[in-house]
Design a protein around this nucleic acid. Structure first.
Lengths: 213, 213, 213, 213
DNA sequence: GGCTAACCGAGACGGTACGTCAAGTCTTGGC
DNA sequence: GCCAAGACTTGACGTACCGTCTCGGTTAGCC
């Protein structure tokens, strides 16, 4: 089981083609908008045949999911752990989210995919399973770590998720609904608000009452 | 331009057809999903010809915008104004938003339209101009009114918008991204948090510094 | 039932498109060979969309069947009936067949369709039902009429068909298999042979014995 | 060029693969029809790779030509030469042709190849060169031999070919065009007719006049 | 009451993209 | 060098939906 039981013959999947397709899809989306992203146009720009695309992806949405998975930047702070205050960590996270949403090419891809997910449940779950859940896991861990410094006692997973919703939601909303990005001031205040919320007493007994939360 | 220069002859627009189209589009979307909503299928289900549709709408998105405009429920509270605390008003708004997003047929329409708006700038501005801005105006007024009781002094428009983002964002995020709706407890805590944020001192001098906010 | 019970609304089938498609298919086949006859290329040359073709025909073979039905020339002799000898009628028929097979554009179409029929039973029966049977009926009638002059007594249908096979077969075989057409001398001798066969005594009692013939 | 300049290394062509391919092509054609005969399906059924096929054949038509060449039965009569009358020889040939066309698996292959030849000149000449001409040569020799008994004096080659056309044509025509096979009675009468034609005087001076015949 | 413009149903039309299929070529690693 | 496996380019296939258009029939409203 540890050894490749049988060495497969024949040509392997062309890495060059794979990369060219992902890059072509990304470029087309950024340059010309989603309606220009066609399996045919991706194939042409990537210098690849349509059939090669359909051999490895089931749809252009599938391609964009792979683009997202590869390109979506993680929230990595350069500072060593433990040297940041909780406020700084949260502010940094908000800023990171905003930057991803509004400035990166990958943000465009994310927009389109969320847009498609809102119209199609299959895309929605694929997006969650393939991309979002992992990111949410990272963010949750970071958050728990940051808050553990200030408030001793474990931060329950559900509670962490609530806080993440409070953090990400407004950034999201501003970027998507109003079209105006989150400015640094808003980021800072948002972080502070969430921290305040965390420290408030009303939460203490609450989580037990929220069954599915 | 002011006067209809000439009295028109012939029959006027058929109200029956208009309603049948809107209803057919809504039903199709709710019953069979967005990919089943085509101009042809709407026409068929409405017992109307495609030409009649294209005479009055430019695309199926246009139809859905009209559906949304007609059906999207306003946040109407049964209580007379002035008898609710700010906390109650905010909690009610959050609850209303959540109900619209997750329970109504119109929520499906809204989802789809936001999804399309994320892929197409034209749809985005149409959605904002035709539907969202008006709702936002109502919500802002309601918010200003509610907060004026507790905190004398006008609530600046930009500040009100910030608070609305704080309120709507997490509801939005939960409904869209995690797929789990907002529960009453979360609604209450969210309202409280936003109120806390409003009363905090850090905001006092701040708005002046936020240029584009 | 005699009256068109209800006048249909809407646009009728475009005769121009129909004719253009048939003509384009014929031209492509004659100019560039069968492998150049593609639904796409027909559409392009006819100035028509692919969908219009698929609305009215199920395949390019269907189109060619229509071409054949419209263009395949009948065996019409200029002479008034009764002024030709049986030999002349038969020779004329053979010459006609040969000319159709080897010289006309329609002959190319016929070749291709027979070729396809040899590979596909559906095409074979369509070809027979739509085109060949009618021609065979005409030829049979002409043959019976011609032979009735010389040999009193009705020519049974089965017998007529046998003679038609004897007549058409060799023309066919030369055109298809050897690639060399039937010359006038061969035509004359073929006709004479068939006549001889007809007058011979061996046939008299025979047809009764041939069950499925 | 005269000497194989160097003894080749490595394995020679796999006879097993060659046979498997021919057999697979034949089986597929007989079992599932021509449209099921693809290079891929042949390779799969033969347990052979596509490359191996393309190394030795240029197309699936090429394969079928080989199938035909190997399997097409010769017209071998069990009787010793000289013990059959001309009528018997001719009747036997007609019967043989009919059996090949209508009953054997190879007949299916022949049909398909003739069908393809009618659509493609290259296939037509390949079919003639590789298969048909040799068979025609055998048939011609047999015919000349048979007729020499009854009618002393050499049967010119062109004349023999004419007679072969007269013989094969109707069998062909019945099998291909009408779909009804040749019955024994028809075979006998056909042979008799051709013999009659042969013995008639009109032929004597004729061949000289037919230039390309 | 007739005229006429605008409405309506039906649905054919030119397009664009889809997703599938087969042909024929090329690449890899084993024998 | 042959072979199995199979990825690759190419190009036709047949389908779906778009948005436009053309019919014949049906109402208003004004003369």
């Amino acid at each position: 089981m540890d050894a490749p039981r049988r060495t497969r013959n024949g040509p392997r999947r062309s890495e060059a083609a794979r990369v060219a397709v992902l890059r072509a899809a990304d470029d087309l989306l950024v340059d010309s908008g989603f309606q220009a992203v066609t399996v045919g146009s991706i194939a042409e720009r990537a210098g690849v045949s349509k059939q090669t695309i359909y051999r490895w992806w089931r749809s252009k949405i599938d391609i964009l999911l792979d683009v997202l998975e590869e390109d979506l930047p993680d929230d990595v702070t350069s500072r060593p752990p433990g040297t940041e205050s909780a406020q700084e960590v949260l502010t940094g996270h908000v800023t990171h989210l905003n930057r991803v949403f509004t400035r990166s090419d990958t943000g465009r891809v994310l927009f389109v995919l969320i847009g498609h997910a809102l119209q199609d449940a299959t895309t929605a779950s694929a997006l969650r399973n393939q991309v979002l859940d992992r990111r949410r896991g990272h963010a949750r861990a970071r958050l728990r770590n940051a808050l553990a410094c200030d408030a001793p006692g474990a931060l329950p997973r559900q509670e962490a998720d609530r806080l993440l919703d409070l953090l990400a939601g407004p950034v999201f909303h501003r970027a998507f609904m109003t079209g105006r990005p989150t400015d640094p001031l808003f980021a800072e205040r948002l972080a502070a608000t969430v921290l305040t919320c965390r420290q408030g007493t009303p939460l203490d007994g609450a989580p037990a009452a929220g069954p599915t939360l």
